[in-house]
Design a protein around this nucleic acid. Structure first.
Lengths: 326, 326
DNA sequence: TTGTATGCGTTATCAA
DNA sequence: TTGATAACGCATACAA
């Protein structure tokens, strides 16, 4: 392994000059700088991360806590996250939480003990007192409404529902129904006020195992008319679509259906659906970008500048399952 | 951060004694050792990986190259791999290759430049000359038959086919057919000799897009009888199953069907199948174990001992789609 | 068996 | 602007 010292001798300067040039922050004589760069490239010099992280405060390693082995969503997020990190010459150390708070804490502590500058948690985002002491080393993906005490990436299904509602409203729909399986949404007065109370069906998550559960029929039983439905879950969408077809409805002209994906779901169409459903969801790329930015700001002094100030916002994926109200 | 030196003073010994106790290799006075452990735990001492990796030769970081964002198989492998690594106090740095050789090389070099002791490559496993120089730092998951020049984990679909054949033979089947989409298998004389030539259907991968392709009909057209079929691909299985049902066959009594999964597929049943198909595949846990073992042996002096010498072998997942021949 | 001293390859702090 | 030199926290060869 070639060291900074060898580069120094070859360039005829001291090692501290080399360090300055390579880190490029301090002012150096351009002529010398050129010499150093030349020598460095000739020797194929690669600074030792080991030494570098010992001498400086940072290891340039960022930990990421992943949920479990079925990481459909997380794999996309991880992919983008790693891509961004590598562009900034930082690397990504992973650890799985096994969907429990204890294991999540374990994973975080492990990553930190391994020298990570900080940790990005994509899972439960529990913020126990245990973690409170190292909160400035943690960025979480907060998918709920409850704010954590750590730096978090706020992404919520309520925002998605809101965006979906907005889109439908723009298309002229006034009677919009909500088929909801989220406690967080059903408690969020702000978003619920967008809907007529009668046009909301709340479905318990465990009730989904009942194959006879038919949200569409439940809605119709209320005797109200509606021209569009927002579902917070793909299974619910499937039920509604199938039911609508059985009832002889023509989609989307008779009924606009839109899926409002939770933040930790793909921003991609579900292959199990027989009907392509438009959806409102967060882009994993956007999330990764936002997460990286938060991490850089929290773990390092110099924040990532880039095209700044684009808050995390749901995107609309139009697969033609909504139509203007006529 | 509490250092080894503080532990030393508190325990009333020198720092080298502390180092010895904590690394547990050299002989130390049990009494002193106890003191040191006590002091260490009282101070919540956690050795700095940064310093440790600079002073010693190892960073205790192992890189893993993942294929792409759709990592269905790799996520399971990663999960198990990380679990094993963490048990041995090593951590897992990831990088994605984007399914090209160039990006794979990039990923490997990046991981190595970040100080990883070695890299486990789960993807293309190309072994260009470029990588040959650092072959002792690379373990690959070789899913083909072609041996790489680096340390590799040999896993092949041919082994799976062989195992499937063996299982069916044990059940009394003598006329076994093979529906194959793998070039590597169709060139492997050893395994093909298990089958009667007439009972082999080779399907080009791109031919799978043709919905009228019916391997079962092709087989039957050969005028031979057979009581069992081995498929090297889930799509093929689906075709065979559907076709068999249309022909009025009762599964599995009329026909045993078994899926011989390629090494880089889940060892889980595919949810897209309407019929549960038994399969022969590698367990991702086994693969992770084997990979970890190879990595430890290649990157560190002390190999992982554990229950040694269990070579990677396909497992049988019985979902009842095979029946004894009668 | 234990303690001392040196080195690992950088970054950071001083003088010059 | 540059160059010595001191950390960084630990492992380890060597001396005691």
């Amino acid at each position: 392994m070639t060291t900074i010292y060898e580069v120094a001798t070859r360039a005829g300067v001291s090692l501290s000059t080399v360090s300055r040039v390579l880190n490029g922050n301090k002012s150096v004589n351009p002529a010398l700088a050129e010499k150093v760069k030349q020598a460095a490239s000739e020797l194929h010099f690669t600074p030792s991360q080991k030494a570098r992280s010992l001498a400086s405060k940072h290891s340039h390693a960022i930990g990421i806590v992943l949920p479990n082995k079925h990481m459909l969503f997380a794999s996309h997020l991880l992919f983008s996250f790693e891509h961004i990190l590598r562009q900034h010459k930082k690397h990504c150390v992973i650890a799985f939480s096994h969907d429990t708070i204890e294991s999540e804490v374990e994973a975080i502590e492990f990553l930190l003990s391994q020298g990570c500058d900080g940790v990005f948690v994509t899972t439960i985002s529990s913020t126990t007192k245990h973690l409170h002491s190292l909160k400035d080393k943690i960025v979480t993906l907060s998918t709920g409404e409850a704010k954590a005490t750590v730096t978090d990436l706020s992404a919520s299904v309520a925002h998605c529902v809101s965006k979906a509602h907005h889109l439908l409203s723009e298309q002229g729909h006034t009677d919009i129904a909500l088929v909801n399986d989220r406690k967080t949404v059903s408690q969020n007065e702000t978003f619920l006020s967008l809907f007529k109370k009668q046009l909301i069906v709340n479905v318990e998550v465990d009730a989904l195992s009942d194959p006879f559960l038919d949200p569409l029929l439940e809605l119709m039983a209320k005797g109200e008319v509606f021209s569009a439905i927002i579902c917070t879950n793909d299974v619910l969408v499937e039920r509604v679509v199938n039911s609508a077809k059985e009832l002889g409805m023509v989609l989307p002209s008779d009924l606009s259906i839109i899926s409002s994906r939770p933040p930790n779901a793909h921003a991609e169409i579900s292959s199990s659906l027989t009907y392509n459903v438009s959806s409102v969801a967060y882009s994993t790329l956007d999330m990764a970008r936002a997460a990286a930015k938060k991490c850089f700001a929290a773990f390092y002094d110099d924040g990532l500048d880039e095209d700044s100030a684009n808050p995390l916002s749901p995107i609309f994926l139009d697969y033609g399952s909504t139509a203007p109200f006529s």
